[in-house]
Design a protein around this nucleic acid. Sequence first.
DNA 1: ATGCCACGGAATCCGTGA
Length: 256
Amino acid sequence: MKIATYNINGINGRLPNLLRWLEESQPDVVCLQELKATDSLFPEKPLLDMGYHAIWQGQKSWNGVAILSRHGVIKETRRGLGGDPDDLHSRYIEAFINGIVIGCLYLPNGNPWPGPKFDYKLRWMARLMAHAARLQTFNLPVALVGDFNIIPTEMDTYKPKKYIDNALFRMESRRLFHELLDQGWADAIRQLYPDERIYTFWDYLRNAYGRDAGLRLDHFLLNGALKPMLVSGAVDKHVRGWGHSSDHAPVWITTR
DNA sequence: ATGCCACGGAATCCGTGA
């Protein structure tokens, strides 16, 4: 099964890019983030026409997550993380597809540091970790997939010094990410490419893509049951070079 | 220290993103 994640940065503005990439890449399941669309504006029909069923949690202007699948109707298992009834951001949706539990997430950016947005990021991560710990008790393959907005190590940014006080790279963010891994999650892309610089995001500013000034922010975390099923994975980097692209590129893995 | 780009939504700018 080919599972992908793609921060689309506005699903309606970039629908032609999304459809072009789906046609080319032929993923079975796709986790999307930053829909930037309300529920009623989700482009269900063009995706169905391409054979993809979808579940989504939209929001006006910002955030928004969705899961697409070619394996028929999707069994949704959760939307939202719980642990904070006042949090109205659409950042988590989860489904059971073809024997795998797939959690699609869009972790808060958290900039600027310090401040309330950074505090929200850390609280959201704590809630994610509480839910991830519950998922670890499942006797099933589980994947946490999406835009984590975290640069896990110095190897995952073109210029570590520049990001020292950035919420994506602050030690608190990295520490929580590694505490999450310590629950028993494997960072699939890093596992496949232990020594390579791999980026999934290139800023629109300053010709970042042309200079390959990127960050690795989009991750696949696999539990112990799913990890031995991992076969391959990669970033569809060229998609970031298409006209009218998102600032993220799609990332995918395949499992047996 | 700031703007550089790009989005949605409203309005001819603002908040946000990373």
